[in-house]
């Protein structure tokens, strides 16, 4: 350990910067080294605290590596069956319109088995938020091909690399969501560097704000590394996000009704 300890630092005229949100549990997480799920958890926690939503938040978790998110955030959480988080969240939000409701879903969960639930939820303009972790594979089950797997990417179910002519091209969920009427905000971000993390936080807060203002559905896609199933070191995986994912999945805001009154959805949050 470092020679100076915490107690000494607190007495000797230091201020802690970027303190950890209190809503995050102080316990080790099961994620692999260099997995971006942890970075995303922190950003969600910071956004909830900064927007003052913690007390009224209900999290809807999904099936995937983030299945234990309820162990890592002190939030009331409903565990949805695989792919059904957006449908469960619809029920939660309609039953409890006073609550702040968000789902946290992987790409297998949201874009494969749960594509219908996710898109209809967005299209209905449910006043909830989705945090979408796109790591281009089914992480939890050992790295099978997802609808987001890049062309040529080798997975356990595409050992020769994903072939566009037989498996199609990867779904660009942030753009697809942006095309739906009920969507107030849709963006894609990454968490590979401080600069990207700052942008990612802004996007998460903007998506959450849509729900707080009752403007409609907010969606944020986070390009994330899965070093284990990419068979890479954490640093190689972090770099792969920059070099391979971002060129196919461009970062940016694809819809923001706060800047476009024409597409605003009427109706209050409660």
């Amino acid at each position: 350990m470092t020679s100076i300890n915490l107690a000494a630092l607190q007495q000797e005229g230091y201020t802690e910067v970027a303190t950890l949100p209190e809503v995050l549990a102080d316990r080790p997480m099961h994620y692999c080294p260099g997995c971006h799920h942890g970075i995303a958890h922190r950003l969600v926690a910071e956004a909830l605290e900064e927007l003052g939503q913690v007390e009224r938040t209900i999290c809807v978790s999904s099936i995937g590596c983030s299945v234990f998110i309820y162990n890592y955030m002190h939030l009331d959480t409903v565990e949805a069956p695989h792919g059904r988080a957006a449908a469960v969240a619809t029920g939660v939000k309609r039953a409890r319109p006073d609550a702040f409701v968000f789902t946290y879903q992987g790409d297998g969960d949201l874009a494969s088995i749960g594509l219908a639930e996710s898109m209809h939820c967005a299209n209905r303009g449910e006043k909830l938020s989705i945090v979408f972790i796109n790591n281009t594979v089914y992480g939890m089950t050992g790295g099978q091909m997802a609808p987001t797997t890049l062309p040529g990417q080798k997975t356990t179910t595409s050992p020769g690399g994903r072939c566009a002519s037989t498996e199609g091209l990867p779904l660009k969920m942030a753009e697809i969501m942006a095309g739906l009427g009920g969507v107030a905000y849709s963006a894609r971000v990454a968490t590979t560097s401080l600069k990207r993390i700052v942008e990612a936080k802004k996007a998460i807060k903007a998506a959450f704000q849509c729900q707080i203002d009752g403007r409609g559905f907010g969606f944020v896609e986070l390009l994330s590394a899965c070093p284990t199933n990419w068979r890479m070191t954490p640093l190689q995986a972090n770099e792969r996000v920059e070099k391979e994912l971002i060129p196919y999945f461009p970062l940016g805001v694809f819809k923001d009704d706060a800047n476009d009154p024409a597409c605003s959805v009427s109706g209050g949050d409660s």
């Binding site: 910067v17 970027a18 950890l20 995050l24 080790p28 997480m29 994620y31 080294p33 260099g34 997995c35 971006h36 799920h37 942890g38 970075i39 922190r42 968490t191 560097s193 401080l194 993390i197």
Partner: peptide, 9 residues
Amino acid sequence: ACARICPDF
């Protein structure tokens, strides 16, 4: 920057 990127806090 280090604290904010650390996936394990």
